[in-house]
């Protein structure tokens, strides 16, 4: 006999994402999923972001890596509740991994939860974690050609942060071309150049977070 199943292969993962989304809405927690290739500066960006926002918001962080607690330790040093997920080879975080870790947070008292995904410009784009916003970080030394070369990641994210702009005088990276390529792939996406190291552009990024935090609360 033939069975017309018509089910998404990621049905269970998507159910977990919907579960997380409901928890985040009920607890009024703004959740931001940060993705990039390894070394684009996600953790340094998070450190600088947390430092800027910690006086106003209670922040939590979920750190995803294949191995070690190194990134979690960096965030804990700033006094932020941080939970590390080690995927032991897994190339992305999925919604079930997040759901399992959520009981370790007091979500009702958490204003903003950042999820730092596994360093990878391909796989994490396919997994909804239940977040409000997806952010991709592309660093200047990687080259602006990564936007057209990995269009699906840039298509599925709300903001592209160009990090390490302090290196623009030293390495070839065409900001204008990057902005144009992004527009042709994802016209609604925001484009923000920053340097997490020098703080350049960080005010715009944290300003955006403050803004969406308000929108998220009023929903």
């Amino acid at each position: 006999m033939e069975i017309k199943l018509k089910e998404e292969v990621l049905k269970d993962q998507n159910k977990a994402a919907a579960f997380n989304r409901k928890l985040f809405q009920d607890s009024r927690t703004l959740v931001i999923n940060i993705m990039s290739s390894p070394g684009a500066g996600k953790t340094t960006l998070l450190e600088a972001t947390v430092k800027a926002l910690a006086p106003e918001y209670k922040i939590g962080v979920i750190e995803g890596d294949l191995a070690t607690e190194r990134d979690a330790d960096r965030l804990r040093a700033l006094g932020v509740d941080t939970v590390q997920i080690n995927t032991v080879g897994g190339c992305h975080l999925d919604a079930r991994m997040i759901a399992k870790k959520l009981p370790e947070f007091d979500l009702d008292k958490t204003d903003i939860l950042f999820i730092e995904n596994i360093g990878n410009l391909v796989c994490p784009s396919g997994y909804d974690l239940g977040q409000h916003f997806k952010v991709v970080v592309l660093s200047v030394p990687e080259g602006n050609d990564k936007i057209p070369k990995y269009p699906i990641m840039f298509r599925r994210t709300d903001i592209t942060l160009i990090n390490k702009i302090d290196l623009l005088p030293y390495v070839p990276f065409n900001l204008l071309e990057a902005a144009e390529d992004l527009k042709s792939i994802n016209p609604e996406a925001l484009f923000k150049p920053v340097s997490a190291l020098t703080g350049d552009g960080m005010g715009e990024w944290t300003g955006w977070i403050r803004e969406v935090y308000q929108t998220c609360l009023s929903r």
Partner: peptide
């Protein structure tokens, strides 16, 4: 790769109709 870019009017105003499915049909 320019998923939203229309080849005729050359504006990024296109919407994807298909291509993202990953489903067990039957």
């Amino acid at each position: 790769y320019r998923i939203a870019f229309c080849p005729v009017c050359r504006l990024p105003t296109s919407e994807l109709q298909s291509g993202e499915t990953f489903r067990v049909e039957s």
